[in-house]
Design a protein around this nucleic acid. Sequence first.
DNA 1: CGCAATTCAATTGCACACAACTGAGTGGCG
DNA 2: CGCCACTCAGTTGTGTGCAATTGAATTGCG
Lengths: 158, 158
Amino acid sequence: MFPGLPDVADEELLRLDQQICFSLNAASRAFGGVYRVLLKDLGLTYPQYLVLLVLWEDGELPVKRIGERLRLDSGTLSPLLKRLEAAGLVRRERSPEDERSVTVALTAEGAALRERAGQVPRRLLVATGLPVEDLAALRALLDRVTVALDAAVVEPVE
Amino acid sequence: MFPGLPDVADEELLRLDQQICFSLNAASRAFGGVYRVLLKDLGLTYPQYLVLLVLWEDGELPVKRIGERLRLDSGTLSPLLKRLEAAGLVRRERSPEDERSVTVALTAEGAALRERAGQVPRRLLVATGLPVEDLAALRALLDRVTVALDAAVVEPVE
DNA sequence: CGCAATTCAATTGCACACAACTGAGTGGCG
DNA sequence: CGCCACTCAGTTGTGTGCAATTGAATTGCG
């Protein structure tokens, strides 16, 4: 038996597992749906918006750092950044001091988009229908779970 | 101004928005990563496991009902179900009483897989590192957000 | 009955996600 | 100096996720 867990029937655990993974999946996609609508006229997808958020904060960053912030690898970021570049929102250039690294920087157009996106957070918070304290609690729980899951050593079943 | 919201600066809202969407994304993918490892040797992806969970509960269901349970449409389910069928885990046949509908049923092999997957929920709960009460609270918050987001009427920015 | 609106699954096209791999570049160590 | 391990971005292949469309089947309404 695993330590730290009450002795609950497998059947009940199965149900809770279902609820958690269903709920998290549903919430994640519900967020995605609202962001998709909000960002539609800006011509941005939700992941592209997330990348711009970190760039709006830091101005310019290597691909590596963006990936660390967003938990994304180059397999996801490379084509996404190429689309942002094709849209004229960012510039990509190899770092002079380390030719392996590619620095991503906002163009004037990309920086200007921040103004138009200013309404997104408020609209989203309203759409959640939760008071800010509850959202903070939710975020805290999510972060705790994420840290634990990242640290967990998991073996495949069987 | 929107009702029910404290008067918070846009800059602060932007930060909270970032935290919420970052946290939810990170948590969602962290869950996915753990499930991926757990399910590896069963030859299942996480979404395929979710489909099997509802089938293990209900035995057989039309594609439509599976989609309602999991918030997935036929564009996602059709190819996924075809892969489960190719793996010999489910059978698909058009309903005799309504030729538009396709009923998905477990094969003996698909039903038997439930035994092997029995350890998945417990392993996952351990990996989250959260007491069961916190997970229940998390689920409750996620469900509230999801209901609100689904009901929210959202207009694109600009 | 007859036909238009609706329902349902499937398909197409696009954009993530991630594992596995590639290849260029860097840094350390003998 | 020379080589090897490592880092970093990019590519490939598979599997979702979703909008939009298609086409068959059904329902409803006059």
